[in-house]
Nucleic acid binder design. Structure first.
Lengths: 348, 348
DNA sequence: CCCATCGATGAGCAATTGATCACCGCAGCT
DNA sequence: AGCTGCGGTGATCAATTGCTCATCGATGGG
């Protein structure tokens, strides 16, 4: 393995590394023992590590994909990435990812935490697996209005209530529809104190829990009525690949506008950016393009995703050679020889 | 592997360990990321290491026996142990061990070092492989007189001279025979300034380089004439198993006296104990019992030995259940239910 | 209920390691 | 010959980690 090392040097590196890592000797002890200076020992240890003389392997539990998570984190400048094990069945896959997300939440929540909760099948699956081992005095607040057209467990108020119940915290519901017919009605509802208070609380949350939607006709935005099938077709023709909280982006993460946004009662994408930890939960198989677009927008901090989607997203990013892509800043959407830009580090 | 860990705990340990060892994150960074305290992260890393979640393996060069060396060091409280690769041929084996010893010396010698050199075939093989990569202003001094009955390369003066030549240092010879016929002659010679000066220098050395002799009739002590065959038979019947500088010990490391000692012109065993680093070089196949006895005497700090002998010595120590044995302090030598004592740590 | 014990915890200090910097030696060039 | 650039080195300071200790909470026993 370390072909570039002379035998003597290799032997010395191995001895010193063994003393340090196996025998738990300090660098000073080793220095004394080998007649070297302490900084010299430090350098030799560095060299031993770089040369592969020291092989550190983490025995992870089955199903834990630490290297894949690393790659996601690095590629998309994420605070964290959690990859759940693959399942052949969509429902089992959703549950596995929800379990991972629940575990993440259990670790991250502290007394006083505020979590803004979005709609979606993936976020909706989470409460069932959420069992904190202590009472957490936190707040779950709806980030979006509700819709009667989708299952109750998909609605933010129900998700918030269930999460609050299991943690011993409290739920703050948004008593408003997810969308209205005219922008004027939306503006009026948003100024109503009950709605405004809840949205303010959500906008000031520590953590946002969101799903990433696709642009197929079965997505939550269409099923809930926020978007018509025609409007969705139009978004697709404009290059939209996915959404978070109803805000669509293209493959490079640039926003794709649509009149439906003026009808939504939800956190805006600007609100979302201001939240310290935006957690996206994804388990559906048709989602890699949507996930890639949303990750490139830079709006997500933590991605909880199934392994097949994780691999597909990374493969997509590698194929188009743009890596994390370019943060949307307006443009023609032509996609012609756009150089790989940098994601704005909004956590500074 | 970590069966006693709950799944969640195992996963957390693996994540944290991966961040620390693979991602090079600091404990503080990990603490912030996982919402824990820094000391808690440190404890989790400790647990991860103890639980085997962290697997650190040193890629040693072929022929390097770091674990065996560890075991020798631990079993016999040695400053160091170096185990050379096995060879089927006695001469090749001696050369391999001498090469190891030469390398050890090269590492350890500094300007101003004084090395006291004993007789023996194993020490005599060393100069041939001794090639320091820089000039070392050191001194090699004979620890024992010489004998015309053995090969010149086995005599301390020749060894010292050869080592000095290769390092650019200087040799101080002992112009006296290894033994005389009467104790009175020995006392007279030891008081002669040329002899006294050399022995004083040798007694004040930083490093002593010695062989370990057996009790067979072909050993250097008999060949050189220091001991007759009868005297050797008597020593054997008294339980002697090996010697260093003509001082015999039994299997437990206790001294076995003999009148020949009053006739020797060499460093005493007390002198040897006062030298900071006494290095014993051993390559002969009949030696495990001798090595075990001498190691148990506590007089040796560093053992350079071939692999078969190393294994045999450790097996012997395990078989008689006494480990490093008991340091000789006088006694009947009955060996009846003597508890495993401790080697006095003379390096304090 | 109270009390004692034990283990976990974070604050804070000590020890160790990482990294910067001035200096030195060496090799190559003029 | 002198000069320059480069890499290695140890002294030293900064950063990180190890470890001690006081405190707290949980548990079990009386």
């Amino acid at each position: 393995m370390p072909d570039d090392l002379r035998q003597e040097e290799y032997e010395l590196l191995a001895r010193i590394a063994h003393r340090y890592y196996v025998d738990d000797s300090t660098q000073e002890e080793i220095a004394r023992e080998f007649g070297l200076s302490r900084p010299k020992v430090q350098r030799l240890l560095d060299r031993a590590r770089r040369a592969g003389v020291v092989d550190i392997h983490i025995q992870a539990p089955p199903g834990l994909n630490l290297d894949l998570e690393d790659e996601l984190r690095r590629t998309f400048k994420l605070t964290d990435a959690i990859v759940g094990p693959p399942y052949p069945d969509a429902q089992a896959q959703r549950e596995a990812v929800a379990r991972c997300a629940a575990r993440y939440l259990e670790r991250r929540l502290a007394d006083g935490s505020v979590v803004a909760v979005s709609h979606g099948r993936d976020t909706g699956a989470l409460p069932r697996f959420f069992h904190p081992d202590r009472r957490i005095d936190c707040t779950f607040v709806s980030a979006m209005g509700g819709s009667p057209n989708v299952d109750a467990p998909t609605n933010p108020n129900e998700i918030s209530r269930a999460l609050a119940e299991r943690s011993g915290g409290r739920a703050v519901s948004l008593y408003a529809p997810a969308y209205v017919e005219r922008a004027e009605i939306r503006d009026e509802l948003r100024q109503q104190e009950t709605v405004a208070h809840t949205l303010r609380l959500a906008a000031g949350a520590d953590i946002a829990l969101v799903g990433i939607g696709g642009t197929d006709d079965d997505c939550t935005m269409v099923r809930s009525g926020c978007l018509s099938v025609d409007e969705m077709a139009r978004l697709r023709s404009q290059g939209a690949v996915g959404d978070v909280l109803g805000n669509y982006v293209d493959m490079l993460g640039r926003p794709v506008s649509s009149p439906h946004q003026e009808r939504l009662i939800a956190l805006t994408v600007e609100d979302l950016r201001r939240i310290r930890t935006a957690v996206a939960v994804v388990s559906e198989v048709e989602k890699p393009r949507a996930v890639l677009g949303v990750l490139r927008s830079g709006v997500v901090d933590v991605l909880v995703v199934d392994e097949p989607n994780a691999r597909a997203v990374l493969a997509l990013a590698r194929e188009d050679g743009l890596g994390e892509g370019r943060r949307g800043s307006g443009g023609s959407g032509s996609g012609a020889a756009v150089p790989a830009g940098e994601v704005v580090d909004r956590r500074v």
